[in-house]
């Protein structure tokens, strides 16, 4: 569940003009680029970075919600939440696989995450404090992610687009799951409704930040558009998300925590208050309340699992050796 615009893209590329023109012609003709096709180095690097950031986000994103599996308030909710967090792990897996087609291994990408060199969506550095947060995350965070991921299904790089199609199919239950939790809270007691409003208050702005800062005329972002890795600007997607979410909040009887939010008849959409981009950059750069903990957890999991992976590899090696010697003995 991720949706933030690429952080720190580097689309620089060094191929000659004829090569780039031929490549661009394929992109413009809406041809998909496949793993072994010739491609500009900048295209490859941008994709590796974006897909791996996306994969890391899915994996780190398992933590805030995973935190509530043992405390889910009913068996039905427990099963749904576990299945949902499991899906996010699967999404990470599909995306790592897509990035691997570009010549980078899962182990390398994992090391980049664990060393802190790679980024992931900053939304997951916000804590899930109450059960209502599980509702808000599904509704808003997955909702924002879906908004972005639907367009990525048409990304010019074949393996990424295919991974996104599978992911979008699975995502469709995530947002419904979250919104259903919110409905139950809002139809419940006064304290349940307060939980819901509190969760919305805390997750609304970080959800809007998920789309990334306005690009302005950032060269990198433009290059991503030209290569059809991305197809809409961050602001366009954010507006779409706000327009979809406001009526959903109204149905719940909840108040969006933005006093400047109002309908703009001319643009047939909502105008919203100012987003605190200082907060965004602060959290992206590591100063959210959970950043250190999220990475530490991931490092611990990696460390604790190392002996298991080693053992499985050693066993496979032994088996191959046994088969080889059995073959020699038979000859």
């Amino acid at each position: 569940m991720y949706s933030q615009g690429l952080i720190g893209a580097d689309g620089q590329t060094h191929e000659d003009a004829a090569f780039l023109a031929a490549f661009q012609a394929r992109i413009d003709a809406e041809q998909k680029i496949e793993p072994n096709d010739p491609m500009p180095e900048g295209y490859r690097k941008t994709l590796v970075r974006q897909i791996s950031q996306h994969a890391h986000s899915e994996i780190i994103g398992m933590q805030p919600e995973g935190n509530w599996i043992s405390r889910a308030p009913s068996l039905r909710r427990k099963a749904a939440l576990l299945a949902k967090v499991q899906d996010e792990g699967g999404h990470g897996l599909y995306l790592y696989s897509a990035a691997e087609t570009l010549g980078v291994s899962r182990e390398e990408m994992t090391e980049q995450l664990l060393s802190g060199a790679a980024k992931y969506s900053s939304i997951f550095n916000y804590p899930a404090l109450t059960w209502a947060d599980i509702g808000a995350i599904g509704w808003l965070v997955d909702g924002a992610a879906i908004m972005n991921q639907i367009v990525l299904c048409r990304c010019s790089y074949g393996p990424y687009a295919r991974a996104m199609i599978r992911i979008c199919k699975e995502e469709s239950f995530h947002q419904r799951q979250g919104y259903e939790i919110m409905i139950a809270l809002c139809n419940g007691s006064k304290e349940q409704k307060e939980l819901a409003q509190d969760a919305l208050n805390r997750f609304w702005w970080p959800s809007l930040m998920m789309f990334g800062p306005p690009e302005g005329d950032s060269v990198h972002s433009n290059q991503s558009m030209i290569w059809k890795i991305k197809r809409f600007s961050n602001d366009d997607l954010r507006d779409k998300f706000i327009n979809a979410s406001v009526p959903q909040a109204e149905k719940l009887g909840l108040t969006i925590p933005d006093s400047d939010l109002k309908w703009n008849e001319a643009k047939q959409g909502y105008d919203h208050g100012e987003i605190d981009w200082d907060e965004f950059w602060r959290v992206v750069k590591g100063d959210g309340i959970c950043n250190r903990e999220r990475l530490k957890n991931r490092r611990r999991v990696d460390r604790d699992g190392a002996w298991v992976r080693e053992a499985a590899m050693a066993h496979a090696q032994k088996r191959r050796a046994r088969m080889a010697s059995a073959r020699i003995a038979a000859e």
Partner: peptide, 15 residues
Amino acid sequence: LGEWCGEAPTLEEDL
């Protein structure tokens, strides 16, 4: 078993 979610030795085993 639910406590393992996000904590398994490989992603495949997590699922």
